[in-house]
Design a protein around this nucleic acid. Structure first.
Lengths: 233, 233
DNA sequence: CCAAAAGTGTTCGAATTACACCCATGA
DNA sequence: TCATGGGTGTAATTCGAACACTTTTGG
């Protein structure tokens, strides 16, 4: 005899809020898809999918993300679960939202295109199906709060980046200007960035030195009680 | 024809991590129950229940908490969802954990007793079923982090409390001593506490003034950009 | 009158803010 | 040579940490 048999069962989905950052137009973007099935076919949506019997929630999120982007090792964390009765008009679906950060250039473009995915600026989002706008709103707030206290900004940048690019990213997320000297002083004083010999030369004549994030060093510092903080004026 | 019909459905449960604070023995406690059904009947467990078709996740959490404690208006927030395949040996169950704070004296004692519930110090927790220890651990970390930056400590205290009691609560959660003068200076400077004329006279001859949290005032300050912070040495 | 808990200020160092000019280079 | 964006330091202020004695009163 099956246990718990008198209780109802539900469809469980995972929806991914996938953030990217465009270093050229200096905007935070979301990877959105045109939904390919009913209900709401053809409407803009977060990428999602139903949880299979053979996988955990985390595994489902990874599968969904991998299928859309071709990427496997990415920043992906559970965000929040949505369980209003009629949130999906097709059936009762409980959806677990996942929050992903990826370097915008790293996605497999063909794969994304096949799936009808596009990067859309968060400043000009289309209407999204169901409660997806709410999911995005919550995730954006989380991003703004987390980036102050965790070194997750680097997940949105290429491996090599300039301090100007890093600052532009923070300004895009905070939606305000920050003081250049104070920003640099603070990030450099943490000693978690490695200055490279190479310069980025597309955007200026002088060129700007590339840096990269030293994750190992960060982990060691963290073990010793260090707290990342880039909540600068 | 039903939409999404080819996908599997799952039992969805809500489990409540219910924190209380005992002002006498100065310990954080959890309201635990002895499980009354198989599997793991008789083992210690978080209070939980399956989500009904007629209710959202939040509503299920409220129902479960109300049934156990008799309390309706309490601090209750979604925490995290747990979806490992074999986390519950009875069946595949996806569980959404909820985090509750209640003044320990406010529960309906008969109701709690009927349900086999007891307050247990987090310093001496029994073994818990399934992944409930993991849920507790995460919630405790969340509590430690949240109480620094949100005025949620008051949810664990009676309406009237002394500054000593408030400080003891913080020390119990932080698991370390804090400086009395700095603590008082900081909390009083926020101007969100109201000093009452009445004194608490059980624990000292001199007596300590009662205070109460002025939630309305806090909300106004927050609207004006104020951030609660009680991350004191 | 004394033990026990409540209550109270000041000083020092660190961190945060505000702020403006020089540098390097390609066109 | 000059326009463009990259890079740098200091002073003033605020905030956090450390620290010890006085007050009250019931027994």
């Amino acid at each position: 005899m099956k246990l718990y048999s008198k209780h109802s069962r539900y469809l469980v989905a995972v929806d991914c809020i996938i953030f990217g950052y465009d270093i050229f137009d200096k905007e935070i973007k979301l990877l959105l898809v045109k939904r390919s099935f009913e209900p709401a076919k053809g409407k803009w949506s977060l990428e999602g999918g139903f949880v299979e019997e053979s996988e955990s929630l985390d595994e489902a999120a990874h599968r969904i993300l991998r299928n859309l982007t071709g990427l496997d090792i990415i920043y992906l964390k559970q965000s929040y679960s949505y369980g209003e009765i009629n949130r999906d008009p097709g059936a009762r679906v409980i959806s677990v939202a996942y929050f992903a950060l990826i370097p915008i250039m790293d996605i497999n473009k063909e794969l994304a295109e096949q799936n009808g995915a596009q990067w859309r600026s968060i400043a000009r989002l289309p209407d999204l199906i169901f409660d997806h706008s709410e999911m995005v709103k919550k995730s954006l707030t989380d991003l703004q709060n987390q980036i102050k206290i965790k070194p997750i900004g680097f997940e949105l940048l290429p491996e090599k980046f300039t301090l100007v690019q890093l600052q532009d990213l923070y300004e895009a997320i905070y939606q305000r200007k920050v003081d250049k000297r104070n920003f640099r002083k603070k990030i450099l004083s943490m000693e978690i960035l490695e200055k490279l010999d190479e310069k980025e030369r597309e955007t200026s004549k002088k060129g700007a030195f590339y840096y990269k994030f030293n994750k190992d060093r960060y982990e060691i510092l963290k073990q010793n009680g260090f707290y990342f903080n880039l909540d600068v004026n």
